[in-house]
Design a protein around this nucleic acid. Structure first.
Length: 847
RNA sequence: GGGCGCUUAGCUCAGUUGGUAGAGCGCCGCCCUUACAAGGCGGUGGUCGGGGGUUCGAGUCCCUCAGCGCCCACCA
């Protein structure tokens, strides 16, 4: 045994990281059977996102569970993935290189991205754009892997996947085709929420409401022969040309007489009916609303349920269409010229102009009244979403099917949630679904929808007759691959074919991470050994997307849950307990902290955060973790130093057995906590015992432990020290991965991370817990006397008079010699009483 | 509007079947004690958010109110 002179934490990451890689310490053994395997569906980080402390927090928590399960003897299937496809990467590439994808451009073989992004984005061909995406994500993934390795995540790096990789594309397209075959996927032309900046449809799951400034504009609709004018209030007067009806509540007496009548829109004179619908709110505005196609999602409901015509004015670029909508012939003579004033303007500009026009015509009543109201935004977007009609692909998810929705609520009940209350978020999301899952995106860096359409003799696509590839051709890109029975020359020609131009949203692929990671369809043997998986760890903010979507996919494809348990981690808050976000500029990056405090200290902080509990970045906690690590170094060095001199003997001394009994209780508590995914409790219990062990037990027995090799008392102490040290090192192994490996290596063979998790029986010698407790507390009381007297702990006590309960004094008697030695006490008397108290006479004090 | 979580020492937080309030940090004091001075020992510090109830007994159970955070919602 070679003990370091001055043990240190420095350099442990550099020492053990490569060693674990070389020894394949965390490699998955695929010969193990399903019941011997613990499989984890690790969240693939969005590599285009920033590295921040939130990135380390949840992953470390999961890693502690993974490591404890591994020590329990389970074979860990613990791969890492990178989520690199999708809009997030496209945006990063746009900003990083200063380019913009224009799919209409031909490929320029000489294209090279500029050194630095210029003032104006360079338009480039789709293929070039995708190549830049492919190039940049590789760089980003390196940075993530470097961080993860430094953090000591015990993933098997040989099994890494990416969501844009071939396996993912194949799985994603295969799953798509199978859902299509089972009528779980369909395409439809329908109003969809549309981001005018990214120019793509977005799904319900990607929406967020933002309080936005707007104004009520009161507009006069003309009653003509049917009666008086009607004033409505709207926040979107620019959509007036898209108005198809007015609507009020059926019970609203103010408008009851008008239902079924016709009024004419201001400025354009378009006749529109006055209708009744229970969704109209009598309290809002003037109690009667104009229905436009489309101003908001309520308009869509009204349009559908009242079977109204479509008058589209909003273009996909967020500007009003050049052509006026179909109004019929019975309109104002000037309708067209007035619309021409709005055409081509964006929503804000058009609003400004139409308000002027309305004011001129006298149809604007009073001044606009400013309000704040919630408006739907794409969660990463900067302008409000519009609603445009387009052909999109959908997966059924219960949004339009009560029975299916209840099925998914049932799946949520079936899943074990940690903490349990997180299921509420799942339930409220599923209950609130109102559309199917829109999966197609009018974007470029994603898994292509694997579909072609035949073109008829006029060159029009036959949307209802999609042509599909065979599964063994996957993955395909319909933009370059050709459907069976056609030649490449027929692309875009009459009687030829055309590719579906869309890609799937990133969630449509990442909702298959359990299948992708476990080799579904690619490696049936691996799949059978690892799926359904054991654990899905993830953040709370993606319950409605990643977690729910994954359940949907596994339900349809396999008729099961994708995993048995899910552990939801909390948020990481900045040191001032504010949610970290890039826009606030309060993001804390992990690398400097890792370098400053060490990986184990960062892991300690992460694992101190209770499951599901928001936790602030706290350098104080990191320092505590570092101190604990140093303590473990020193305590290990001391114990092993004692053991080095003489052999361990049979554990006979009551206090030795007593300490081990307390350790046994700790082991049980830690094992139970881990079984419930409560790594934080396990850490706290281990830590509490460890400090007692160091402060009290080591002090009490060190003199005895130094005793002669053949002394039974010394042998007992050394035996207990050895056993306790082994157990303590293993209890800390899931948390302090580097320092525990280091101290383990001083006296044991093999990695501690493959050593067996301690059991309570290992340290159970039937000891009386009271002996150690009484000795420790009495010693503490002696110290207090010395501390009050302001003398050294080495100061001799000539006589100590201990009062305590009879039962505790009896326990203490079994440890008297250790107490005398530790307290430097010459003589000791005991008196039965009700409470512990110690009167000590100090040798070197004046009388 | 509905739901969930949180509210305990100056700070960050534990407190698992209800039984005399805990830890770390900070602060104060002492101690170079041969594992550890990037340490050790000891101490100060709380009417457990407010109010009501159940109970012999409530931080812990019930009701209610308030503040903070988050989730969901058809938002003219």
């Amino acid at each position: 045994m070679q003990l370091p002179e001055k043990p240190s934490l420095d350099g442990l990451e550099e020492k053990w990281g490569p060693q674990w890689e070389a020894d394949r310490t965390y490699s998955f053994d695929r010969t193990k059977s399903r019941d011997e395997i613990f499989s984890i569906d690790t969240p693939p980080p969005t590599v285009s996102g920033s590295l921040h402390m939130g990135s380390v927090f949840g992953y470390v928590q999961t890693d502690t569970i993974a490591r404890q399960r591994r020590m329990l003897g389970l074979e860990l299937f613990y791969p890492m993935g990178w989520d690199d496809n999708g809009l997030a990467t496209e945006r990063r590439v746009q900003n990083y290189y200063g380019v913009r994808c224009d799919p209409s451009l031909p490929v320029d073989p000489d294209f090279a991205p500029p050194e630095k992004p210029g003032d104006r984005e360079i338009p480039i061909a789709r293929q070039s754009f995708v190549e830049l995406c492919d190039r940049l994500v590789v760089e980003d993934e390196k940075k993530f892997e470097e961080l993860w390795r430094r953090l000591g995540l015990s993933v098997d790096w040989a099994m890494t996947y990416t969501t844009i990789g071939e396996r993912s594309r194949r799985a994603s397209q295969r799953a798509f085709l199978r859902m299509l075959a089972r009528d779980e996927a369909y395409s439809a032309e329908a109003p969809t929420l549309w981001d005018v900046d990214d120019r793509t449809a977005v799904a319900q799951a990607e929406l967020e409401d933002r309080e936005t400034a707007a104004a009520y504009h009161a507009l006069t609709f003309h009653g003509g022969a049917d009666g008086a004018d009607i004033v409505i209030e709207t926040t979107r007067p620019e959509l007036l040309p898209a108005c198809v009806a007015l609507v009020a509540h059926p019970d609203d007496v103010r408008y009851a007489a008008r239902f079924g009548q016709t009024v004419r829109t201001p400025l354009f004179g378009v006749p529109v009916p006055v209708l009744a619908h229970p969704l109209a709110d009598p309290e809002k505005g003037s109690g009667i609303a104009m229905i436009c196609t489309f101003g908001d999602t309520t308009d869509v409901v009204w349009w559908r349920e009242l079977q109204l015509p479509l008058r589209n004015v909003m273009g996909r670029d967020g500007r009003l269409l050049e052509a006026a909508p179909e109004w019929g012939s019975d309109v104002d003579a000037e309708a067209s010229t007035r619309y021409a004033e709005l055409a081509g303007k964006n929503a804000k500009q058009a609003q400004r102009r139409i308000v002027e026009l309305l004011a001129e015509s006298g149809d604007l009543v009073g001044e606009p009244k400013p309000i704040q109201h919630p408006v739907k935004f794409y969660e990463r977007g900067s302008r409000p979403l519009e609603i445009v009609t387009s052909r999109q692909w959908y997966f059924r998810n219960g949004g339009r099917d009560q029975t299916l929705r209840e099925t998914f609520l049932g799946r949520g009940e079936e899943l074990h949630w940690h903490p349990a209350h997180m299921r509420q978020r799942y339930d409220s999301w599923v209950e609130g679904l109102n559309t199917d899952w829109l999966v197609s995106r009018q974007r470029f860096f994603g898994v292509p929808i694997p579909v072609w359409y035949p073109l008829d003799a006029r060159g029009e696509p036959q949307w209802d007759a999609p042509m599909l590839p065979a599964e063994d051709r996957l993955p395909i890109d319909p933009a370059s691959d050709v459907p069976v029975g056609f030649t490449a020359e027929q692309r875009g020609e009459p009687n030829g074919f055309v590719a579906d131009a869309d890609v799937m949203d990133t969630w449509a692929t990442s909702s298959l991470t359990p299948q992708i990671a476990t080799g579904w369809g690619d490696d049936d043997d691996l799949f059978a050994r690892t799926f359904p998986m054991d654990l899905r760890p993830q953040g709370p903010e993606i319950i409605r997307t990643w977690l729910f979507d994954t359940i949907v996919r596994a339900h349809f494809e396999h008729g099961t849950l994708p995993w048995r348990d899910t552990a939801i981690n909390g948020w990481v808050l900045d040191p001032d307990r504010k949610k970290m976000s890039k826009s606030k500029g309060n993001v804390v990056t992990p690398m400097p902290l890792l370098e400053k405090h060490g990986s184990d200290a960062i892991r300690y902080w992460s694992a101190s955060g209770r499951p599901g509990t928001d936790t602030a970045v706290d350098e104080g906690q990191m320092k505590v973790g570092r101190r604990l690590s140093i303590k473990l170094l020193n305590a290990s060095k001391f114990v092993l130093g004692v053991l080095g001199d003489a052999p361990a003997g049979e554990i006979t001394a009551p206090i030795d057995r007593s300490m081990l009994q307390a350790l046994s209780v700790t082991v049980t508590e830690c094992s139970d906590a881990f079984a419930q995914y409560d790594y934080a409790r396990a850490l706290e219990r281990s830590e509490r015992f460890f400090w007692d062990f160091c402060d009290d037990y080591l002090e009490l027995v060190k003199h005895r432990a130094y005793g002669p090799a053949d002394d039974p008392g010394a042998g007992s102490a050394r035996g207990a020290l050895s056993l306790a040290l082994s157990v303590l090192q293993r209890l800390f192994a899931p948390f302090l991965v580097y320092v525990t490996e280091e101290v383990w290596s001083w006296w044991q063979d093999g990695s501690i991370h493959r050593a067996p998790w301690p059991t309570d029986t290992e340290v159970n010698f039937g000891g009386d817990p009271l002996v150690f407790a009484a000795a420790a507390q009495t010693l503490s009381a002696v110290r207090r006397v010395k501390s009050d007297a302001k003398v050294s702990m080495r100061a001799e006590v000539t006589h100590a008079a201990v009062t305590d309960t009879a039962i505790r004094l009896e326990a203490l008697a079994a440890a008297t010699d250790d107490l005398l030695a530790a307290g430097v006490i010459a003589t000791l008397t005991t008196t039965p009483g009700t409470d512990l108290s110690v009167e000590a006479t100090l040798a070197d004090l004046p009388a």
